[in-house]
Design a protein around this nucleic acid. Sequence first.
DNA 1: GCCGTTTTCGGCCCGACTGTTTTCAGTCG
Length: 577
Amino acid sequence: MPVHNSDVADIFNEIADLLDIQGGNPFRIRAYRNAARTVGGLSANIAEMVHEGKDLSAIQGIGKDLSAKIVEIVRTGTLPLLADLEASVPAELSVMMKVQGLGPKKIKKMYEELDIQSLEDLKNAAEGGTIRSLPGFGEKTEQSIIEELKRIQGQKKAGKERIKLAEAERIAGPLLEYLKGVKGIKDIAAAGSFRRRKETVGDLDILCTCKKNAGVMERFVEYEDVAKVLAKGKTKSSVALRRGLQVDLRVVPQASFGAALVYFTGSKEHNIAIRKIAVRRNLKINEYGVFKGEKRIAGSSEKSVYARVDLPYIEPELRENRGEIEAAQDGGLPDLVAIDHIKGDLHAHTKATDGHHSLEEMVRAALERGYEYLAITDHSRHVTVAHGLDEKRLSRQIDEIEKYNQKQDDIEILKSIELDILEDGSLDLPDDILGRLDLVICSIHSKFNLSREEQTGRVIRAMDNPHFNIFCHPTGRLINERRPYEIDMEKIVRAARERGCFLELNAHPDRLDINDFHCKMAREMRVKIAVSTDAHRLDDFDFMKYGIGQARRGWLGPADVLNTRSWKSLKKLIRRK
DNA sequence: GCCGTTTTCGGCCCGACTGTTTTCAGTCG
């Protein structure tokens, strides 16, 4: 069983919880939690880094000790320290940390005084009314424990904690509209990972400025979708929505809006890094502004905050402390690609296979988005569930497109196909028919369970075919549903560069494949990326914005993206020698 | 346990809200 980054993060988090409950050194505990977050959020595979002998202590927050512990986890799947801790305190106490409102101090007290060792014990004690006997605990604490236990039970069944960006957007959109309609609200913005366009969102942070006594918090907790008010104060309130998402609303003074936006957009790692720069200059940055002593010297705009530490404005998608601060200091920040740069879509299906609309309908939808070209990429024959095209049917589609292109010049329809890569690395249709196409995009739809070497070799063999242009949804993952198959992305990118091939960033919000980390790697290795929607329906063309978000997180500029080019220059670029 | 332009010791983010108190500890982000 290969060790995943989340396995390492889970072990570190459990260690932190148990140390916390034991009353350990708070900074040591923080180091474990930091490391858990860092490793969990790493896009590179940590086990792989270990196998390749990479120096883990180069990672911020991982030192000599923790890197040795990571190596041990990768090799053995566990850690003696964890076993020691579990021998001295019941392991399930760490599970209790998931109960909101319970922290290490309370858990320790309940364990020592009432011998509460498990969620089961906790439930019985809360329902039996024995917890209120402890000093510092009361009836309300008991009640909230009971409610929390129910919520956790429900969540276990639902199984997911972070929701996909697109789903968060469906929830956030109407809520923001509602809040914009509240009298007295001036500026309002969603911050957090939502603003950074991260592929999944844990909770939603909303910031606003408002007139005095506007009653904003009252209106917020009255929102129709609110299931539970978790906290309600003058400047900060939290609610749980019916669909499980937690939303925090913060009201900040106008003069602090920019500083608050920086603070709540994060990432935490990015904030810590810029605060450190501030400290070196005898300044303090918090959510209210940049301070010199008691005096606020910046904070109304994000730009003003960055300017005080001699940095240019940094786009939210870059704020992950993955080199953006150093780049900003050296004047090396990338100019990021934007949705307006996109001139066409290079991946779309029609009714001929598993799409839902005719070629004409798809073309019209592309025209509505102002595109200059659209590639029609139906499946090939091996994908039988999608009624994939064989030579004959593809040939008919080619004729149809040629006819269509002759009778109009509003948009160029590219003759193309999403060609299946077979298990042995051969392509699903013969070369002579591929020669009639403008573009060939290739993907894997079967045999996900090959070994890393086999899968990588399979794709590189496919790239050896001179008709191969773009490798689609390269890791095959479905966010929250299917892990990526084992594949060596560095080798794939290198092979693509050597052969004049390209990679797709599939913009479908369930895929967003390749991820931000791989985008950045491809950019550094000078391999260009097609940001494509894989549209099966007319509205799917709007997925482009998610792809662009991910591309920006991967540092891609317009020049790094294939479909920012006109068809004329794209055509030259994809031609293989 | 990490980190270093005050570098091998001594720092490590801090403000808001809740519940149980009667001035604050615990929790959260």
